[in-house]
Design a binder for these strands. Structure first.
Length: 886
RNA sequence: GGGCGGUUAGCUCAGCUGGUUAGAGCACCUGCCUUACACGCAGGGGGUCAAAGGUUCGAAUCCUUUACCGCCCACCA
């Protein structure tokens, strides 16, 4: 039965709320997170993936920023000049839509408000939001360099955007052109290919027949969007399709509209699909547009930007596209043009923001020619200059880069960087963010120029983030110090949208890759594996977790629970584990401090003259842990790093070491061991500081008795080879085995917990006997042993329980206490296990091929294992027989 | 249609270049408020490592195929 903490007699559970708030303010006051461009320490730079100003902190941000903070804090501790740049993204479409919705609640329409007024209000709103989300990052302990906070619409960043536009335009890499774009009729803007999602939906294929001119024959086409037939300008067949070659060059009459359309031949048509005849609508389908260009066909736009039909649609003018479809199909049916309707599942493109169905739409847009930019970005990956973690993401990146398409950068919005292009009435263009001066547009009156009404895609500012934030295009000290950066931490969703484009921009404008490592983490899912999202309402609010369990608990739980390169499944009780661990750490520090009894410990030096076996053991384990953690950091395996620390602290340090050095009641702890305990605790605090900065700093302040001391700047523990000792670790394993075996015997035989018992150990060789003898005082507290007798000639006392481990036989005299049936079962069970193992081993060792081919050390190992098993079985058998006689 | 991940205890995951008696946390069972910690301590039960082939003396680990789950890309009207 579990009790609430307040019901227990004691109860000094760690309370993070007060500590975390106080320490974060303390750190800010001391300016610990500011990086100085003039520092001579090597720089280590991370730029934050700027959260959208529409967002409130969710668990995905929690994970993303925890990882970055862990990395930045560790490097800061290792002596780097660590710059973690904070900021936010204006998130064009998302922000404008959200704000417009809010306006609508007030009964205000954006067009009524007017562009200028609208921008004023949305800016105010965006700034309030951005402050909120950035402040939320403070709650989870992020050590961001707040002095350098940037926003993608800051004047400096806008200048970078203009400068980049001009550069690419002058280079011929930005062009304006009529293209089929992804058009969202609800948001009334174009979208880039990467902003479009594909959904499989049930739909229909309508088979419609077109009468061949001057004949009674018909050609039947299949279409998923019949309303677009109003804009048809040809029918096409495959040139090799013998069914139709005779019709090529003739023409058909477009039903209802009665327009004459040529029949053309183009290899684009797949004879196997549908009827093998395709209607060509160049203004409303990207493929048809290409076909139209090849055959010099006219384009007829039949829709308005809001998805209603325009005057080209004749009597359907003004109808919504789907209403028009219905009426048109009805009429086709009535007039005998509709041959059949077939159920058909089709891939429908939808807007990533509002989810409405995208309309391929012919319009004039601005594009960036991407191929030349992609070249160095591909090279960076292939040469190993740019690395993804986990590595397999590089395939995704490469595939996109090598099949890159031009980037549509204009958006029909108001919120964003306005396209820095001004038009004269004759169509001449001038590049400038502000109205050009008379010198900038010789021969034209500046006052008569009009600016392009559109804005740039949000990513057109985000792709400059690694250098625009440090002052580019000015040549600043910051830029020199902090570019290129070191690692980019993000989720896989924006590898194309953002990561890839940053690499391209880095090379084009800075001549160097913006970072060398890209750490891709998973997307947070709920307990059932469903992506957490606001709309589904399955999200967990990280701030609620901070309130309930503390920021440290949130952070360590997330790092422990996020498998490398996979999606973590997170539920509320994921965080209990982290909370418990933080408390455990705090409790063991209380133990050490109580024993220090007010004496100030020496943390940075180790007196190796006064060590016992356990001291040397924990130092060896510590050294190995540091090695492991360092390696995991190098490999970007934070889950493994945090797990290594978790088990070192909980198992090695708390459960074994601290228990081993605990003195008998009323006694003082051995000074040498207390010094080691303190020394190791200090190292633990350092190793864990990146993960759980608050509790570690709090304990550090307590240990040093000073708020002036901090873990922020390290030093990070280093590996001292001399402290590693394999033989010693093996000896400890033997001692642990004895303790564990005695505990198990007592527990399984229901020996009352308070009852002490003698322990007799018969060893098969003297070195183990020596080891156990030398440390017999430790068996008292750990295994409730009264007196210990060890030797090769030790006899089994009457009425004693027994256990057999490698190299030793343990006897626990329990006259009157022993449950004979239970003891029989115990022995029988281990006997069965051992026999199974022996059987398998014997087979293996009887296999001539194994003996002939396996390496000698493997064979030797298996042989000695077999000997050991046989010996144990024999001893177990004897003990069992003896019991039978009771 | 192509590509990439995943499939190990009831749940979430470790298990590196093949040789372990296949591990951890949570959950479960038993006993404990033992002066660091009940957010705890000690002990225990629980797995034919998705399936089938193959390579090998030896496969959870390597190869092939299949199934299922998830993600990404794709112009079949």
């Amino acid at each position: 039965m579990s009790k609430a903490p307040e019901e227990t007699k004691k109860g000094h559970a760690y309370d993070p709320a007060e500590v975390e708030d106080r320490l974060y303010r303390h750190w800010l006051e001391r300016d610990y997170f500011a990086a100085d461009p003039a520092s001579t320490n090597p720089a280590y730079t991370i730029v934050i993936p700027p959260p959208n100003v529409t967002a409130v902190l969710h668990l995905g941000h929690g994970l993303n920023n925890t990882i970055q903070d862990v990395l930045i804090r560790r490097h800061r501790m290792a002596g780097h000049n660590a710059e973690w740049l904070p900021g936010s993204d204006h998130a064009g479409i998302a922000t404008q839509i959200m704000f417009e919705k809010q306006l609508l609640k007030e009964g205000v329409n954006r067009r009524e408000l007017g562009r200028e007024k609208f921008l004023e209000r949305i800016t105010e709103w965006a700034y309030a939001n951005k402050d909120q989300i950035l402040n939320q990052l403070k709650r989870i302990g992020c050590s961001l360099d707040w002095e350098r906070e940037r926003f993608t619409m800051d004047p400096g960043l806008s200048k970078a955007v203009e400068s980049v536009f001009r550069h690419l335009y002058d280079k011929g890499l930005i062009y304006r052109g009529k293209r089929i774009v992804n058009w969202c009729p609800v948001d009334r803007t174009s979208l880039s290919d990467d902003e479009v999602e594909t959904e499989n939906k049930a739909g229909h294929l309508w088979h419609i027949r077109y009468k061949i001119r001057g004949s009674d024959e018909y050609l039947t086409v299949a279409t998923t969007r019949p309303e677009t037939m109003l804009g048809d300008t040809a029918l096409a067949v495959n040139p090799k399709d013998s069914r139709y070659t005779k019709f090529v060059g003739k023409s058909v009459i477009l039903p209802i509209v009665e327009r004459e359309l040529p029949i053309i031949a183009d290899t684009y048509v797949d004879p196997e699909f549908g009827t093998g005849v395709v209607k060509i609508t160049p203004a409303h389908d990207a493929n048809d547009f290409e076909v139209g260009k090849r055959h010099d066909l006219p384009s007829v736009v039949v829709m308005n930007t809001d998805g209603t039909m325009n005057e080209q649609a004749g009597k359907f003018k003004g109808l919504d596209r789907y209403e028009a479809r219905e009426q048109l199909v009805n009429e086709l049916k009535q007039r005998g043009f509709l041959v059949s309707i077939e159920d058909y599942d089709l891939a429908v493109k939808t807007c990533y923001r509002c989810k409405s169905v995208i309309e391929p739409y012919l319009s004039e847009q601005w594009f960036v020619k991407m191929e030349p930019l992609a070249k160095p970005a591909v090279e960076a990956l292939k040469s190993g200059k740019l690395r993804f973690h986990p590595e397999f993401w590089s395939k995704t990146y490469l595939h996109w880069m090598e099949n890159i398409r031009d980037w549509c950068i204009s958006r029909q919005l108001w919120w964003g960087h306005r396209i820095p292009v001004w038009y004269a009435s004759d169509g001449t263009m001038f590049i400038s963010a502000e109205r050009p001066t008379a010198e900038q547009c010789p021969g034209y009156d500046p006052e008569t120029l009009t600016q392009d009404p559109d804005v740039l895609d949000t990513w057109f500012s985000s792709w400059l983030w690694p250098f625009s934030t440090f002052g580019w295009p000015e040549e600043t000290d910051e830029l020199r110090a902090f570019y290129p950066g070191h690692v980019l931490v993000t989720a896989s969703e924006i590898i194309f949208l953002w990561v890839a484009r940053m690499v391209m921009a880095g090379y084009e404008f800075m001549g160097d890759c913006p970072f060398e490592d890209v750490y891709i983490h998973g997307t947070v899912r709920d307990a059932h594996g469903v992506k957490m999202s606001k709309s589904l309402g399955n999200g967990i609010d990280p701030l609620e977790i901070v309130d309930q369990y503390g920021a440290d608990a949130l952070r360590i739980s997330l790092t422990l629970a996020t498998p490398d390169g996979q999606d973590p499944w997170i539920s509320r009780n994921t965080f209990e584990g982290g909370r418990n661990f933080v408390n455990k750490l705090y409790q063991v520090s209380r133990f050490v401090q109580m024993r220090l009894n007010g004496n100030r410990p020496v943390l940075d030096k180790l007196d190796t003259n006064d060590l016992v076996i356990f001291d040397r053991w924990i130092l060896s384990r510590l050294t190995r842990t540091i090695e492991d953690v360092d390696r995991y950091f190098r490999e970007y395996r934070l889950a493994a790093a945090s797990k290594a620390l978790y088990s070192f602290v909980w198992d090695d340090y708390c459960s074994w070491y601290v228990e081993l050095i605990k003195p008998e009641a009323g006694q003082e702890i051995r000074p040498g061991s207390l010094a080691v305990a303190t020394y190791v605790l200090d190292k633990i605090l350092r190793l864990l500081h990146p993960f759980v900065p608050f509790v570690t700093e709090e304990i550090h302040h307590q240990l040093t008795g000073s708020n002036d001391s901090t873990l922020t700047f390290g030093p990070w523990p280093d590996v001292q080879e001399a402290l590693k000792d394999d033989a010693l670790e093996a000896s400890l394993v033997q001692i642990q085995e004895v303790v564990t075996a005695v505990r198990a015997m007592r527990s399984e035989l229901n020996v009352p917990p308070g009852k002490r018992a003698d322990l007799h150990i018969r060893v098969s060789d003297n070195s183990l006997g020596q080891l156990l003898n030398d440390h017999q005082s430790y068996f008292g507290p750990l295994a409730k042993v009264e007196t210990l007798r060890v030797g090769t000639e030790v006899k089994k006392p009457p009425f004693s329980a027994s256990a057999v481990i490698g190299g030793a036989e343990l006897f626990l005299p329990l006259e009157g206490l022993i449950d004979i049936e239970a003891e029989k079962n115990r022995l029988q069970k281990s006997l069965n296990e051992l026999r199974n193992n022996l059987e398998r081993l014997s087979k293996k060792l009887a296999n001539q091929d194994f003996l002939a081919r396996a390496p000698k050390d493997v064979i030797d190992r298996e042989r000695s294992k077999k000997d050991d098993f046989e010996e144990r079985i024999e001893r177990l058998n004897k003990n069992l027989e003896q019991i039978m006689g009771w």
